[in-house]
Write a protein that binds this DNA or RNA. Structure first.
Lengths: 240, 240
DNA sequence: GTTGACTCTCACGTTACGTCATACTCTATA
DNA sequence: TATAGAGTATGACGTAACGTGAGAGTCAAC
């Protein structure tokens, strides 16, 4: 699908699609020889997600973070969206009540406190923002992963190499020399992209098993890898 | 109430209130010696209206036009708001359905067309915008009244004086010398604030009875005044 | 009489596009 | 096959609705 088709289908402007491309929020899967953007069905699904999060007040930057997050899960997102919509529908009910009361009070049939006048009208802090943050993390949790992304493809490949390496060792003793060398590479790697003391390193290891978002991603390289890394990281920190 | 109280009550920021003051959208009824803004209950009601229209996507400029419109009516506004909320609630239902279907299609239980994927997600053109325009007018219709507001209090008083004058004559012959002098004043007045040919003047008179927004406002000065003015204006235009 | 919470007015920054301007691409038809 | 008309691309500046300090005054309370 080309820009205008997408625009007509979804109700957003062509300029908006250009903008989303510019900021890397929705980059079309294909481009013609002439430079025309061509959107895939996958792109459309992503756009649907974007529009949804936008509708409920998320800034584009945060939406991008969510979608980019390695722990992001489309199905979970849809479920959260469902919850948000239901909540919003309930809020609308409150607003309608408020309006009804206001109408009656305007007719002098009753009086309202100022608080009552704004019941349902407070959109200030979206409780789901926290929920989304909790699910797909930000700041702290994915710090490492995000930094990796910043440092480009090579760094990413380095990281994967270390993960694969460790995954192969994951049924051996984490205190063994081989494992400790591998985990030492991990420590060195992390310090290339961030700043980790030995304590922080050990703490990070704890998070690998404590936080399922980490666990999931790490265990992609091998079942039980997260636990193995935690153990190896603790030993490494203690010994150095 | 002072800024922060209002902010806490309504969930908007202090800066927002400052902003609304700056652009003349919500000017506090009182100001202390020290220059502190003090909001009245009336101000709060207005703010409620503002927040509502903002929530449903009206730009502040348009909101200001609505509230400033002489034909604006709080009760009508609340009723429109009710309708909009009900419609939005219905739309939410559609969106929830869409999400449910999407979830099922993600699980491979069914397939969806692209159009179905965006059902309920198109917020592009707000149908109520037109509705609001129709009720409280814009551009053309209230041009005169708006210009009056621009020219300050004196002009406003001049206008009212002419209206009252005509209202007293409204049971006499619109072709009489007295009536024609009065309507001539009206013509002169209008040309002070705008640019009206004789034809335009007669046409305006037609609108006074054709458009109920005009009729309502004019008849506030006396029942049947709008019709009377239309007649007098036509005669005036024909004679000059 | 000095905090601490609140307020004021600049004034520049930001987000998410809108709105041209200018130029290329691609069918559809004369 | 030339050419119009609809669509698209890339700048680049404009706009709306505030956010975010900076610097300074205000005010009740201890």
């Amino acid at each position: 699908m080309r820009v205008k088709e997408v625009a007509d289908l979804t109700g957003v402007s062509v300029r908006t699609l250009h903008h989303y491309d510019e900021i890397g929020l929705l980059v079309p899967d294909n481009v013609t020889e002439a430079g025309y953007r061509v959107y895939s069905d996958e792109n459309l699904t992503t756009l649907q997600q974007i529009l949804f999060f936008r509708e409920v007040g998320f800034p584009l930057k945060k939406i991008k973070e969510l979608l980019d997050s390695p722990s992001f899960n489309r199905l979970e997102a849809f479920e959260l969206q469902r919850d948000m919509l239901m909540a919003k529908r309930k809020q609308l009910g409150t607003m309608i009540e408020t309006i009804d009361k206001t109408l009656r009070s305007e007719r002098g049939e009753m009086t309202m406190t100022n608080e009552e006048k704004f019941k349902g009208f407070d959109f200030s802090s979206n409780p789901y923002e926290q929920e989304a943050r909790d699910r797909w993390g930000d700041e702290e949790v994915d710090k490492a992963n995000k930094n990796v992304a910043k440092f480009g493809k090579e760094t990413q490949e380095d990281m994967n190499r270390i993960y694969y390496n460790l995954a192969e060792l994951r049924h051996t003793d984490p205190a063994s020399a081989e494992a400790q060398v591998a985990i030492g590479e991990w420590y060195t790697f992390l310090n290339k992209i961030g700043d980790y003391s030995l304590e922080a390193f050990a703490g990070l290891g704890e998070m690998y098993v404590a936080d399922e978002r980490f666990t999931k991603n790490i265990d992609k390289f091998g079942d039980g890898l997260a636990v193995y890394m935690r153990d190896a990281m603790k030993i490494f920190a203690d010994r150095n």
